[in-house]
């Protein structure tokens, strides 16, 4: 098993996490392991992206956190409670996979049903409808809603309890570009302040735009967890110069350059990008022809492919 890349801080300094799993595992029969030994930690107040290819185990994990599925082994605590317990669910709003409501009821009546289950006040219904900009269509039957409206109603239902933790599973699935942009804007707004958002997605750009930290899951295992910038690795400079071998030899001797690697005819220097001009000058003065020099940053896509062994998303 691949050990997860994890950005650690001193254990004693860390506040108690809102979501914490320990060796969480879900098996279906002897052959299929949907989630394997998952150690997840979502801190209070952050927007956490749970990233992984389709079928990686994201939804199974979220269902376990909500008590819909029982783990085969391991444990989880959500807001300090056992998953699925009424005390925990009272503080959690969730949208798992596609939004599911009663088709013969209007949007408002669906929320009335959900408010009765959750004990939320009736006044909250109007508030959350406003929040997701669905007030104008609240009297229409759910079956007449577009996919985007259904997703927004799903978010509205998740917000009814004014939850501390919002769990959103692929909330932009099936939406058109405008719908996706609107939904991301909404999630960003919801994630401001003290509310914690756990967002599962297979869209790299989405988590990059919205999330503070990410966890990457592949084949049921967590392969990386941390802030996006941290996971991308140390800063560097990409240099394209000829002859490349000579450029590499000179670069290795430069002050402030920690590591030099040659890839695809270009050098990647582990160094502060602020030193780019100085490095350029040294290479040129050594008689090398420098055709390109820029800060090198591993894209999230590159990182993702590296972590998931090239699994497609």
């Amino acid at each position: 098993m691949v050990a997860p890349v994890r950005q650690e801080t001193a254990e004693k300094d860390r506040p108690s996490p809102l979501v914490e799993t320990r060796s969480l595992t879900k098996r279906y029969g002897p052959r299929i392991t949907a989630v394997r030994e998952l150690d997840l930690r979502v801190e209070r107040g952050e927007v956490y992206g749970f990233l992984g290819p389709n079928g990686a185990g994201k939804t199974t994990t979220l269902r376990m956190l909500l008590g819909l599925i029982r783990p085969t082994s391991g444990s989880a605590a959500v807001i300090g409670e056992k998953p699925g317990s009424p005390a925990g669910l009272e503080k959690i709003g969730a949208l798992v996979e596609s939004p599911a409501f009663y088709p013969y009821l209007s949007g408002r009546d669906n929320l009335r049903v959900m408010a009765r289950y959750s004990g939320a006040s009736r006044s909250r219904i109007g508030e959350v409808l406003e929040q997701v900009e669905l007030s104008g269509r609240a009297k229409d039957k759910f079956k007449k809603y577009s996919l985007g409206m259904k997703q927004r109603l799903g978010v509205a239902a998740a917000l009814l309890k004014d939850p501390e933790l919002l769990i959103l599973d692929e909330p932009t699935n099936g939406l058109d570009p405008k719908g996706m942009a609107d939904m991301r804007g909404l999630i960003r707004r919801l994630g401001k302040g003290e509310r914690t958002v756990l967002l599962s997605s297979h869209l790299l750009g989405e988590v990059e735009q919205i999330c503070d930290r990410i966890g990457v899951i592949s084949k049921g295992s967590l392969v990386a967890e941390g802030a996006i910038a941290e996971l991308r690795g140390r800063e560097g400079i990409m240099v394209r110069a000829t002859p490349v071998e000579e450029a590499a030899q000179i670069a290795e001797k430069l002050a402030g350059v920690e590591e030099v690697t040659v890839n695809d005819g270009a050098l990647r220097l582990t160094a502060d990008p602020e030193r780019a001009a100085e490095i350029n000058a040294k290479l040129v003065s050594a008689g090398l022809r420098v055709s390109e020099l820029r800060p090198a940053e591993q894209s999230l896509e590159e990182l993702f492919l590296e972590l998931t062994d090239g699994e497609t998303v």
């Binding site: 819909l68 699925g84 009272e90 996979e97 599911a100 009663y102 088709p103 289950y117």
Partner: peptide, 22 residues
């Protein structure tokens, strides 16, 4: 049965009621 057909079981159960209460 409709709770399964419409997959509304997950929506209802995650609201709070608990399976026994539901």
């Amino acid at each position: 049965g409709s709770e399964y057909g419409w997959t509304t079981l997950k929506t209802s159960l995650t609201q709070r009621p608990g399976r026994f209460g539901f």
